[in-house]
């Protein structure tokens, strides 16, 4: 019998307020996806950097050409005798020229330049030597060489990654707050229009949580649908836009495609959940305030 529809018909919801909510949630979900991708990609990129830099060190020998050979062999002796160093190899001029190419824009003629002597050091990553100890040994032998294990760069890369990661998480928190605030506002306004209906429900014996449930149900679907649309557009952009290929490459979940539907579902459910909780809070506080 169609004369009695379910609970869903009890409150005459306006299509306009639903559309507004949908738009806000979709926009927020879209932004949240980029924030999330940013956080994941940054973490991944930072890990690659630090991994690439780990296990290697360099020693720079500033000396004129006559002295350089002697000092280089002195340095190599010391390094090969140091625990935690697997290998030390002096780079020849060609190697050095290659290393410097990006800065000179063409292969430099090192004969004209006071190019430093460089020793490439391979470290035992399980047991890296303390750089200050290595430096002290080099100084003690009067090698006039500078040991660099890239610790400063590694530290900076990690710090930058953490900072960007943190900002991304804050962006997610703001997204959640924005969805909650939108739901709260839309419901507070709607409840003014529904005042008579809500009063009639209360007089018929409805508990506050029953009234809240009617709004929660609607906002669950608005949240889920908005989340689906917003994240759908964002994911399509990730997959489809060539300009984003490097972001895509850095997203760890691409390594495991089965991960995607769950991540997507998670975003959609998170949007729905936030909308539902905000709806409940908005309805219960409004009802109590009205008394």
């Amino acid at each position: 019998m169609s004369a009695i529809r379910g609970k869903g018909a009890l409150i005459p919801f306006q299509a306009a307020s639903g559309g507004l909510m949908l738009l806000i949630v979709a926009a927020m979900a879209f932004l949240a996806c980029f924030a999330l991708a940013g956080a994941l990609a940054t973490t991944r990129i930072a890990a690659t950097w630090t991994e690439g830099l780990a296990g290697a060190a360099t020693v720079r020998i500033d000396a004129n050409e006559d002295d350089r050979a002697r000092r280089t062999s002195l340095v190599l002796d010391i390094l090969r005798d140091t625990e935690g160093i697997i290998d030390a190899r002096a780079l020849n001029e060609r190697d050095v020229a290659e290393l410097l190419t990006p800065w000179f824009g063409g292969t430099p003629d090192l004969g004209e330049l006071p190019a430093p002597g460089i020793v490439a050091v391979t470290l035992d990553t399980e047991n890296e030597p303390d750089p200050t100890v290595v430096q002290a040994r080099l100084d003690g032998a009067g090698a006039g060489a500078i040991y660099d294990d890239h610790g400063r760069w590694r530290g900076r890369a990690a710090k930058a990654a953490r900072a960007i990661g943190n900002l991304s998480w804050w962006a997610l928190v703001l997204t959640v707050l924005a969805i909650a605030a939108a739901a709260f506002l839309v419901i507070s306004i709607a409840m003014v229009a529904h005042k008579g209906t809500i009063e009639a429900l209360r007089l018929a014996g409805a508990e506050d949580r029953f009234v809240a449930g009617l709004y929660q149900k609607r906002f669950f679907w608005l949240g889920a649908l908005g989340g689906l649309i917003g994240s759908g557009v964002a994911l399509t952009a990730f997959v489809g836009l060539d300009a984003l290929s490097s972001v895509r490459a850095a997203l760890p979940m691409l390594d495991a495609p089965y991960y995607w539907p769950f991540a997507w579902l998670g975003i959609v459910l998170a949007c729905a959940l936030v909308a539902v909780l905000a709806a409940r809070l908005a309805v219960l506080t409004t009802l109590r305030r009205r008394g």
Binding site: A9, L10, L201, G205
Partner: peptide, 12 residues
């Protein structure tokens, strides 16, 4: 509808 109005105390 009239029927939904009558059903209200039961629905809530």
């Amino acid at each position: 509808s009239a029927a939904e109005n009558v059903a209200l105390p039961l629905t809530v």
